[in-house]
Design a protein around this nucleic acid. Structure first.
Length: 748
RNA sequence: UGGGGUAUCGCCAAGCGGUAAGGCAUCAGCUUUUGGUGCUGACAUUCGGGGGUUCGAAUCCCUCUACCCCAUCCA
């Protein structure tokens, strides 16, 4: 649990601490128009996870405002996905469609306020009136309709008096807004369609932008978490709630959606796979759907863990599928029984063995703290994996060869005596001999083997079907069907497994020793015809080494960045720039910053009138003041130019250090207090007396012997560490220049 | 092109002016009757590029670049 907090949890914590909300309420709000995939899992883990972490609650809400795409079967799949992942929603499942009456009333309220109007422009014209990203839009002629007319029209829209598309209800915001979403967004459209839940009651349906924020509000949601593509919609979200005067309301926060390499996540592309027959339905074990992972054998824990590991941020990213595979291996490693299964059988006859015996074997290796064992039948004729014998072994081969004995796991050591081939030269059988005194657990043979391999007794083994999956796409960032891997499914009809797996059924998931993790297919498995899905292979450093092709070292060409052209200065800016560099001796960068920004230059000039310290003044104005002026006007600032001059005066006098000056500045930004008062009140006067600083340094040096050694060994960047420690100990008041000098002497 | 975002190791990702966390992947070594697991170690003199401010910058300022989102009566 030492994991650092993500930005959402940081926000939630702050909001709880500040008392903005008493309780955190989140929601998972999918539209029930498709099957949930692992991207939904991320969202589920975030929303339910945050609610759980802060003792709040999370609702499951179907965002079902579009009657033409939604269906009950998706509602069920979504509910099941949340449950499968191990989360509980508060009370019943919510439906935006249940809020239709309330949402409708809010629309009426907006009309009455003159903030919404019925527009009867056709679709095409509306698009052209909306303008483009660079050109402002124009309002339609219907925007001036009276409140009464709007009310009347809207009611008749609801009653079903108009055809689809004849009218819409729009918010009256700003047709020239830079944010396209704010150009009088649509709030209602006419849809004469049957809603899977609301039936035929409604002829008008609210749009996402209107319904979502209100649904969040109605449910008392505090943190409305969604993906990055809704960033632009946030302004509408806020506009609706603010205009309606709804207080104690939710705020929207966005995170980056999940991408995994060799995988597609879009509903449309997933649907193409299903419809195109590339996979066998939504729950095909190769699909990145919850149903697919579940059928494949992934555990809810592993998916949750994965969502935890990848973190939450705002950068678009592509997670390596290896991270997911690690999670399922990691989970199953400590849980699942080990059994023996031969996928590609090669017959071995043990010439010197007669009769049969039962070998006792634990289901779990020593490092897994679980109990349980079974009997494994053993006799003269067994199967081993074809891969585990090599007539002409490559270097570093640990398994059975004509010269090299091998242990049969849980049984005896065997040695190859004869290789039987068919007329084509294919190996069909191995004749071997066993060492009677090499029995597992009581080996006195003294024979050293390099490896222990899995095997099954031919007579007692059960035939099983094993489905081995490879990644669905051959491209790391697949675009569509053209990138599908044609060999993503291998069905092995004649694999052989030890009988206890079928008769004892110690679990549903197994590790087939040395091969990977497998899952009894929940749909097709029967005792008569057992079917197993391969969940994931074991890590295989031998196969990896073998397959290592000399990858041509990429040319590592350091990417050259081309600098764009800087906009030329205007004449006035140029004059100012010249004055700053020539008369005031500012460096060109600072002069440039100041000269190009009218707010900054005027602020600077004003401060200069009070104090003749052009360079220091310029520095603080072009750096610190610039930050405050980015989104504000000068008259919105709590401090003024005279106060900045007073602050700089103290730096010039060496009353305070630059570091303290920044601290004082922060305070001025917040309170507008006089800098001198702040310095006095907080006792921030700089300590430059070496005799006061010296003992503190001694103490720090004494407390950090390791770092002192490292420093003396040449790790000079540690000087910063020591300076930091001393400054921390003095509340930032020590004169850093003095500290540096002293430190350099003492650490020598 | 206006606006809104984002850039830290091969892939994720912390970091909020004072020693560049952690996970995955990779590579070594030890352990091992799974070429698994476990353990140990290695793996960013540097944070998209360039400048500036500072004793000190991934963090503050300026500037450039690249990528993502927005002009559905979808969500």
């Amino acid at each position: 649990m030492s994991k650092s907090k993500d930005f959402l949890r940081t926000i939630v914590e702050e909001d709880l601490k500040s008392g903005k909300y008493k309780e955190v309420v989140t929601r998972f709000p999918p539209e029930p128009n498709g099957f949930p995939h692992i991207g939904h899992a991320k969202s589920i883990c975030i929303n339910f996870g945050i609610a759980k972490d802060y003792d709040g609650h999370c609702n499951l809400r179907m965002d079902d405002t579009n009657p033409t795409t939604e269906d009950t079967k998706y509602v069920e799949a979504l509910k099941h996905a949340v449950e499968w992942l191990g989360f509980n929603w508060k009370d019943n499942v919510r439906f935006t469609s249940d809020y239709f009456p309330q949402i409708y009333n809010y629309a009426i309220e907006l009309i009455k306020m003159g903030k919404a109007y019925v527009d009867s422009t056709n679709e095409e014209e509306m698009r052209s009136l909306r303008g483009t990203v660079t050109e402002p839009g124009r309002r339609s002629k219907y925007a001036d309709r009276s409140v009464e007319e709007n009310l009347d029209l809207f009611e008749r829209m609801k009653k079903g008096e108009f055809k689809d598309g004849e009218h819409v209800l729009r918010a009256k915001i700003d047709m020239s807004a830079a944010n396209m979403k704010m150009r009088d967004p649509l709030m209602y459209r006419i849809r004469h369609a049957h809603h899977y839940r609301a039936g035929d009651e409604w002829s008008v349906y609210p749009m996402y932008d209107f319904a979502h924020c209100l649904s969040d509000y109605i449910e008392g949601v505090s943190h409305s978490i969604c993906t990055l593509e809704f960033e632009n919609n946030r302004d509408v979200y806020n506009w609706v709630l603010d205009t309606l005067g709804l207080s104690l309301r939710p705020y929207q926060h966005e995170f980056a959606r999940l991408g995994i390499n060799y995988t597609v996540m879009s509903k449309r592309k997933l649907l193409e796979l299903v419809n195109g027959g590339q996979v066998n339905g939504w729950d095909d074990p190769r699909m990145p759907t919850i149903a697919g992972y579940s059928r494949r054998g992934y555990t809810p824990e592993s998916i949750r863990n994965f969502c935890d590991q990848i973190g939450i941020a705002k950068a678009n990213s592509m997670v390596d599928v290896a991270q997911l595979e690690f999670c399922i291996r990691d989970d199953l490693n400590t849980k699942v029984p080990r059994v023996m299964c031969v996928l590609d059988p090669l017959k071995v006859t043990i010439l010197n063995y007669e009769g049969t015996e039962e070998l006792n074997a634990s289901y779990y290796p020593e490092d897994v703290p679980k109990e349980g064992s079974r009997q494994i039948p053993f006799s003269k004729e067994i199967y081993i994996e074809r891969d585990d014998f090599s007539e002409n072994p490559p270097k570093g081969y640990f398994r059975l060869t004509p010269e090299q004995p091998v242990r049969l796991k849980h049984a005896y050591i065997i040695t190859c005596k004869e290789i039987i081939k068919d007329s084509d030269g294919n190996i069909v059988e191995i004749k071997a001999e066993y060492s009677p005194d090499s029995k597992s657990g009581q080996d006195t043979s003294g024979i050293k083997v390099k490896s222990a391999i899995q095997w099954v007794d031919i007579k007692e083994a059960r035939k099983v079907e094993v489905r081995v999956y490879d990644r669905l796409f051959k491209d790391e960032a697949p675009q569509g069907l053209e990138d599908v891997n044609p060999d993503s499914l291998h069905v092995i009809k004649n694999a052989f497994i030890e009988p206890a797996v079928i008769t004892q059924k110690p679990d549903e998931r197994f590790q087939f020793e040395r091969q990977g993790y497998f899952y009894a297919d929940p749909v097709d498995y029967t005792d008569v015809k057992p079917v197993f899905n391969k969940i994931v292979g074991l890590k295989d450093s031998y196969a990896k080494k073998k397959n290592t092709v000399e990858i041509t070292p990429k040319p590592q060409a350091k990417k050259v960045q081309i600098d764009g052209e800087v906009v030329a200065m205007s004449d006035t800016e140029q004059t100012l720039f010249d004055k700053y560099t020539n008369e005031l001796k500012l460096n060109s960068e600072v002069a440039n910053t100041l000269a190009r920004d009218e707010k900054l230059s005027s602020f600077y000039e004003e401060s200069l009138a009070t104090l003749n310290s052009p360079v220091n003044l310029a520095n603080i104005v072009s750096n610190e003041v610039a930050r405050e002026l980015k989104e504000k006007q000068i008259n919105e600032l709590k401090f003024n130019a005279r106060q900045i001059a007073a602050l700089v005066k103290m730096i010039d006098d060496e009353t305070i250090s630059n570091k303290i000056a920044k601290q004082v500045f922060e305070e001025m930004v917040k309170s507008g207090e006089e800098p001198i008062k702040i310095v006095e009140a907080k006792g921030l006067i700089q300590i430059s007396d070496p005799s006061k600083i010296s003992p503190i340094i001694d103490e720090i040096i004494e407390k950090n012997p390791d770092n002192v050694t490292k420093f003396r060994e040449g790790n000079t960047k540690l000087l910063g560490f020591f300076v930091g420690q001393v400054l921390k100990a003095t509340g930032g008041k020590a004169n850093p220049k003095v500290v540096n000098e002293l430190l350099a002497q003492k650490l020598k």
